[in-house]
Amino acid sequence: MNGEELKIKLAELLPDITIEEGGEWLNVLIAPSSWLSFSNQLRNTQGLDLDYLFCLTCVDWKTHLTMVYHLTSTIHRHSIVIKSNLDRNKPEIETVSHTWRTAEFHEREVYELFGVNFLNHPDLRLLILPDGWEGKNPMRKDYEDPINIIKL
């Protein structure tokens, strides 16, 4: 499916999304509350079949956090990027680890490094950081560690 067809299809599925163009792929901005049902639709709708989550990450914009999901279809070979803005003080979004199983690991990484709380995640624990880690999340922009981080 090319960009135009994808846009029409996505607008049909969920009317209140914002679609940005310009980058390499279609950027879709959604509200965190609608993510769970939308992710299932993306995965299972015939013609979309976005079954491969190849990158899941988060960006700290100082005013808010943005979750970024890169999806592609192994059948039709089209890719889209899903973004969702979260409140920086209480970041919460539904997990997609039941839709794309690899997300279980990626979400654990984002959870510890950015402090995003994934609702209904089956096993939300620290993955990379040592057990008993307390304090702020190291990948946030305001994280300070005078001992372990050497400022360049």
């Binding site: 190849f54 990158c55 970024v68 690899t102 690991f105 990626h106």
Partner: peptide, 16 residues
């Protein structure tokens, strides 16, 4: 760069 993410193949493969 403002933010860099490396999508490493090993991390996803390990999840399986």
């Amino acid at each position: 760069p403002y933010r860099i993410k490396f999508r490493s193949p090993g991390f996803s493969n390990l999840s399986s």
